[in-house]
Design a protein around this nucleic acid. Structure first.
Lengths: 132, 132
DNA sequence: ATCAATAACAGTAATTATTACTATTAGTGT
DNA sequence: ACACTAATAGTAATAATTACTGTTATTGAT
């Protein structure tokens, strides 16, 4: 895997974004700075980076794949309504227990993904208000 | 949601299958018994059943959604190579800790999904052998 | 610095999973 | 038995992602 300006830009955009962007979102974000950027390039690079372990792929957030560059041990909360994804920390004791569980699992070289699907507080409020 | 023979067949097929089938797989399985069955019907019913909580949707197993009718508390191991999904139990202590964590999470009405992505033992063997 | 080899690119076409649409069928309460 | 309408079959449409092709840019060696 050799250097490319496009990949650097993509990785930077991912690092500087609090959201967990989709390929399409990153494409839209970078297009103004790099008018010749191609969506296929964004996909290819995100795949390469995820494959190499440099970033994480979050599947299941409303059909689209999302990406996360954070390496610290955390899990994700996904709103079924707005699709927003947020980081959430596991309590240390749980994290330790899970690490042990992972080590004993019948798959090697694995990555553990914990997803909480639900309705976030903002959406819950909105839904209540529209019901009134 | 009123009864339909198609939905009954789909749910039964799901119950009697150790794999975590995709919509397409169930369609292929049921087609011989119900030649008029439509793929759209399979999708619609799986969505309805998942929505109502009767079954679980597993996102992220290689792009395709998979479905699981088991209601007991368990998580999933996905092989990156063959795509197979298996059930795995959490140790009771971990399950308890996780339940508490879930209850405190900033989303309501949530569902927790724990996925371990990795290479299963069968595939690991195969890969080793082809390398020889 | 120049150059050859080729990884990565842009642009576009193709694929694949899933959803939407419409006329018809079948489950359900009266 | 009948009317109401949810659910269906069949097909068309959508949306995310991947594949393909000719061109560009990075890299290691001369």
């Amino acid at each position: 895997m050799r250097y490319s300006r496009q990949r650097e830009m993509i990785l930077n955009a991912l690092k500087n974004n609090p959201v967990h962007p989709t390929a399409d979102y990153l494409y839209g974000l970078l297009r103004p700075k790099m008018p010749a950027l191609s969506l296929g390039t964004v996909y290819r690079n995100l795949n390469m980076l995820a494959e190499s372990g440099a970033i994480k792929r979050l599947r299941g957030a409303g059909g689209k794949d999302r990406f996360d560059h954070n390496n610290f041990d955390h899990c994700h909360v996904i709103c079924k309504n707005c699709g927003r994804v947020r980081d959430i920390m596991l309590p240390p004791a749980l994290a330790r227990g899970l690490a042990k569980f992972k080590a004993d699992a019948p798959v090697s070289a694995q990555e553990c993904e914990i997803l909480l699907h639900g309705i976030c507080r903002d959406c819950k409020k909105k839904i209540k208000e529209t019901k009134k």
